[in-house]
């Protein structure tokens, strides 16, 4: 198979995630965009397992030195990332809800970043 295909898909997903993080103002939508980014990372990790494993056998034409290759760890890494994401979403939900309780909004533009607005 051509690993370039999943890699490029992952790149596109990460780009979409970045766009979402930059564009969205609703905290929950930002969280969703971050999930896209994390999934892109996972896709890269899983694909890397494939490309690394075959590289070990010297299959592709290009000889590339991976003396310490830990092929096969990508899948495990991806599982860790999934669990990390789950933990983060769990806490994130609580934080968003608390924010909503206090301010009746989930728009993060209203998170004051400037000192002037805080000190008023």
């Amino acid at each position: 198979m051509h690993v370039t295909i999943p890699y490029v898909i992952a790149a596109a997903l990460f780009g979409l995630g970045v766009y979402g993080v930059a564009r969205r103002r609703n905290a929950i939508l930002v969280l969703m965009a971050v999930e896209l980014m994390l999934n892109a990372v996972n896709l890269i990790l899983v694909t890397a397992d494939v490309s690394l494993r075959s590289a070990l056998r010297g299959v592709p034409g290009e000889a590339w030195a991976t003396p310490n290759s830990q092929a096969g760890s990508g899948g495990a890494f991806a599982l860790f990332v999934i669990v990390l994401a789950a933990a983060e979403v769990g806490v994130g939900l609580a934080i968003v809800l608390q924010f909503y309780r206090v301010r009746r909004a989930v728009a993060i533009d209203e998170v004051p970043l400037d000192e002037e607005r805080v000190s008023e």
Partner: peptide, 15 residues
């Protein structure tokens, strides 16, 4: 994580 993944894809090392 993206950085770690790219590095892993290129070199295969995590340790």
């Amino acid at each position: 994580l993206l950085g770690a993944a790219l590095n892993y894809a290129a070199t295969g090392s995590i340790h």
